[in-house]
């Protein structure tokens, strides 16, 4: 029995799928945070991931910081970009239609992409793995310690966000803004601050995804759009606004993509997640874990 595990190709694909799936889950969480507070879909979410990876490279290689502080600095910088996006762009457009809001976030995303291309050029960059130990064999499958880091970080972030939104004062206040911004304001919740916080938090989660994937897949300026789109697929599949749903759906997408690359065609692996996204939008827009009733109340 133990032999079906030993060195099996499928086990290797599954591990790769879990790792990339955890990244999609983190990107999906970024959408969910902003969506939960403002009901806006932020088309620049993928660029936060890209910026996270590239700022990590900047602080580690260019500024020569040790790895830990460099990663924290990268996450903080991208969070600042998220705050600036809200304060100077989204807030100006807050009375605009949903259509204008989509155009505004698309515009911001291509500004970030263009800026990254000017700053870092078109080459891919790599960060060192978070722990120094090399890959080891487990049941005949090569395991990179970085893959375990990605999985662990994904689980921790999902847990922390769930606790934050369910139990903490700030988390509940942020959720109240989405339910009814006017009622929230009447009860004394500073709605604008909460919206601002949600963009910062979402950008930070995106950056965490970026720095943790950079040692495995490298990072370059034009990776944001596809990462963002697949992350959105995970967010929709899991039910917009649902944190655990995003985690499960992200991993489903990652596994589907990895098995497609292994057994069907590596050229079409990027299409798998997108086809699943479209199927979800068409047949189950409330997601695997969302309720139809709740979806009916949402604006997007």
């Amino acid at each position: 029995m133990a032999d079906i595990f030993h060195g099996a190709a499928w086990l290797q694909y599954a591990l790769g799928g879990l790792t990339i799936g955890a990244i999609y889950a983190l990107v999906a969480l970024g959408y969910n945070i902003i969506y939960n507070v403002t009901e806006i879909i932020n088309f620049a979410q993928g660029e936060f991931v890209m910026l996270g990876g590239l700022f990590g490279v900047f602080y580690y290689q260019t500024c020569g910081l040790p790895l830990g502080p460099a990663l924290l600095a990268a996450v903080a910088t991208v969070a600042l970009v998220g705050l600036l996006l809200e304060r100077y762009v989204i807030r100006r457009a807050r009375h605009a239609t949903v259509l204008s809001m989509i155009i505004v976030t698309i515009a911001f995303s291509i500004l970030l992409k263009g800026g990254a291309m000017l700053a870092w050029g078109k080459d891919p960059y790599r960060l060192p793995p978070f722990s120094r130990s090399g890959a080891f064999l487990w049941h005949g499958v090569a395991v990179q310690p970085q893959a375990l880091w990605v999985l662990g970080i994904g689980a921790v972030v999902v847990g922390a966000l769930t606790v934050f939104f369910r139990t903490s004062f700030y988390g509940k206040a942020m959720l109240a803004c989405a339910d009814n911004a006017d009622a929230a304001r009447l009860t004394g919740i500073p709605v604008r601050t909460m919206v601002l916080l949600s963009f910062g938090l979402s950008a930070a989660v995106g950056a965490v995804a970026g720095v943790s994937i950079c040692p495995i897949t490298l990072m370059e300026y034009d990776r944001g759009a596809l990462l963002g789109l697949k992350g959105f697929g995970a967010a929709v599949l899991g039910g917009l606004g649902q944190f655990y749903g995003a985690l499960v759906a992200g991993i489903v997408l990652g596994l589907a993509e990895s098995f497609c690359a292994g057994y069907v065609s590596s050229g079409y692996k990027d299409a798998v997640a997108l086809v699943l996204l479209m199927l979800a939008l068409f047949f189950k827009p409330e997601g695997l874990f969302g309720s139809k009733e709740a979806a009916g109340l949402k604006r997007f």
């Binding site: 879909i41 949903v98 259509l99 989509i102 789109l229 959105f232 929709v236 996204l277 479209m278 939008l281 068409f282 827009p285 949402k298 604006r299 997007f300």
Partner: peptide, 8 residues
């Protein structure tokens, strides 16, 4: 409803 067409 809304802007699913954008993402689709």
């Amino acid at each position: 409803k809304g802007h699913y067409l954008a993402m689709a």
